[in-house]
């Protein structure tokens, strides 16, 4: 479904990614892991088109999308939840969901209800300004907002970072449910235990390169521990 081949990217002269390749099969959950600063967020930003790729290619559903603008990638079925529970702070929770719905190709209002079903905690808050929600609620909103476009691949960047424990659990369960329902997920996650519970496959990055990749069963192994230890 998603194939990333030899992807290179960076910020100005500072190169961050040196030929990253990975694949997400339909309906699978792939977890990208690695220490801070190894290029995980840069990889997702390049896949989404926020950063231009300086080499390699991104193929989605058999079509190359390496040079497409971000909004065109969303229209093809990629849904992105960026790092740091970002919202449109002055819009209401409903406004955040609607603005995404109106930009989506299907524009089916039922998608808003479906997204709110995933995080019922948001339902009483729909009229509130997104900027006044707690970090965890904002993260739930960010995921719900990506779901409104009915993506076929959900790209999540550290969805549990800086979120209160009670909501971490809810987010984990939601991701699990979505995945069980057939949605493909590309997840960046720092915490091994969460990755072990959720992932089908994993990829470990170090200094902008893939240093290890494998099935979830291997995640408990020595090699993985060594690569992730700080």
């Amino acid at each position: 479904m998603l194939r990333v081949r030899e992807l290179c990217a960076g910020y100005g002269r500072a190169r961050v990614l040196f030929g990253v390749s990975l694949e997400v099969a339909p309906g699978s959950l792939v977890c990208v892991m690695g220490r801070n600063g190894v290029g995980k967020t840069t990889l997702l930003n390049t896949i989404m088109g926020v950063l231009p790729a300086t080499g390699g290619e991104v193929v989605f559903d058999g079509q190359e999308i390496t040079r497409l603008a971000p909004h065109e990638r969303v229209r093809r079925g990629l849904g992105y939840v960026p790092q740091g529970h970002e919202t449109f702070p002055q819009l209401s929770v409903m406004g955040n969901l609607l603005v995404t719905l109106e930009a989506s190709p299907h524009r089916d209002p039922a998608a808003v209800e479906e997204a709110l079903e995933v995080f019922p905690r948001l339902k009483p808050l729909v009229k509130k300004r997104a900027g006044f929600l707690s970090g965890g609620q904002q993260q739930q909103l960010a995921i719900a907002r990506a779901l409104v476009t009915r993506p076929r691949l959900l790209v999540l960047d550290e969805p549990t970072e800086g979120v209160q424990p009670s909501i971490v659990q809810e987010i984990e369960e939601a991701v699990e449910r979505l995945h069980a329902g057939g949605l493909a997920v590309l997840l960046v996650e720092q915490y091994l235990d969460l990755a072990v519970r959720l992932a089908d496959r994993f990829v470990i990055l170090d200094a902008g390169r893939v240093v290890h990749a494998g099935e979830a069963a291997e995640l408990g192994g020595e090699e993985v521990h060594r690569l992730l230890a700080v």
Binding site: A69, H71, Y80, V99, A146
Partner: peptide, 9 residues
Amino acid sequence: QLAAVMGID
């Protein structure tokens, strides 16, 4: 940037 990755042109 968020608007762009939410599908807004």
